[in-house]
Design a protein around this nucleic acid. Structure first.
Lengths: 229, 229
DNA sequence: CGGCGGCTTGATCGGTCTCAAGTACGGTGG
DNA sequence: CCACCGTACTTGAGACCGATCAAGCCGCCG
């Protein structure tokens, strides 16, 4: 379901060559590399991009929209590991299988390149190898930060989430969230009701305002920061 | 406090050379590389090995004993990110600073090598670069697994912890835990009382027995596995 | 024997979940 | 344009799990 005709036709050798001949300034970022060699692909809202334990043949970058990666426990509980926003890279694995499932949160377009091409480039160029490492290291830092969230109170988790999103969406005081309350709940390890209630509390405390359910204005950042750590 | 006299005298160029001339079979693992080039260093129980945000000048491997890495929130709550047992590598960072603090849980000896040597070797040899990536990727998988733990009930967390330790300590049915109840609690995001109570419950349910507080015998693994996922 | 640190156990409190309505919004068809 | 519907979200009441506060216990070492 992933591989479109023109992806199949990609020629590893030629493309590996493209990596080798790239000027360093472009090779500086996997993002740049992805942009040059990748194929664009659209996904509908809630469409699966890949499933846990499926072969990890491609590396992805969000062009527009948003993506969630998650795991599901046997009893149905879902843990969202991360959200990916435009510019973010996801699906990069050391092993041959994806460790999480990935879905489009809204209608989304991604670019993707064959993982084998990236690995081949890393063999030849140490700066590409370092990029792979640095992306995984960044994911690790985010995962550790996420772990820290999960030991906090509901208010602290929600406040931290809002601040994280404000930073990553680059919005000044007004957020336009792509994800549902259920997504937020599954990211923060709370229930949808607790997320909703906590947002209402924060609004009552004048820390935020909620002109629409997905639109959140940060009114008092210092109050949120106080909750954050 | 880290740098002993003979570490200061280490010569990067010579040691980088040693990496280059190593037979591939040894270079296959960072562990092997560490063993050859590393200096041994002992730490007392509860001694700090490095602190969060300190320069990450060395990479460590546990020889004997056990190590915890952790973060502390401003209000004093502590989150243990990981436990490291003999054979485990820790303290490897992409950036120049440690993202966690590290302490010896019991009297511990580690071997360490300068991070700069490892990085230099990775520049020259793509298989070393891949090793760095693979260690960070392993840490990432563990962190994701840890995140999954934190959304579960107390029983499930404790059961998962016991199974993880049984696997990593390689003990058949009997565990000799190096860490205190407080360490376990801070790893699982619970209180010491809840950990203690939950262990008692599991003993009452005949899933484990507790001949001594740090010694735990797994009596019914399938019962623990049922709790685990 | 006394004291101390680590652990267990008990009683109560409180935050989050659960179950259950009720509300707002966007889309679709009349 | 409105009526209707379904989905997402909010709000309320009560139950439950784990935290908190408080003793007591155990093993170790002086």
């Amino acid at each position: 379901m992933l591989a479109s005709a023109n992806l199949q036709e990609a020629r590893p050798r030629a493309d590996a060559g493209r990596f080798r001949s790239m000027p360093p300034s472009i090779c500086q970022s996997l993002l740049g590399a992805l942009e040059l060699t990748g194929a664009k692909m659209p996904f509908d809202r809630n469409a699966e991009i890949y499933g846990e334990n499926e072969p990890a043949d491609y590396v992805y970058k969000v062009v527009s929209g948003a993506v969630r990666t998650y795991k599901v426990l046997s009893d149905g509980r879902r843990q969202i590991d991360a959200f990916f926003l435009p510019g973010d890279i996801f699906g990069l694995e050391l092993g041959d299988e994806h460790s999480c499932s990935a879905e489009a949160i809204t209608d989304t377009t991604v670019v993707l390149v064959k993982r084998s091409l990236v690995l081949a480039a890393a063999e030849k160029q140490s700066n590409v190898a370092r990029l792979l490492w640095s992306h995984t290291a960044r994911d690790l830092r985010r995962a550790q930060h996420h772990t820290l969230l999960l030991i906090k109170s509901a208010q602290e988790r929600v406040a931290a989430f809002l601040l994280e999103m404000a930073e990553r969406l680059g919005a000044g005081g007004a957020l336009e969230l792509p994800m549902s309350r259920q997504d937020i709940a599954d990211y923060l390890g709370l229930t949808i009701e607790t997320v909703s209630r906590t947002l209402s509390q924060l609004e009552g405390a004048a820390a935020i305002s909620l002109p629409a359910s997905r639109r959140i204005v940060l009114r008092d950042r210092s109050a949120l920061n106080r909750l954050n750590d």
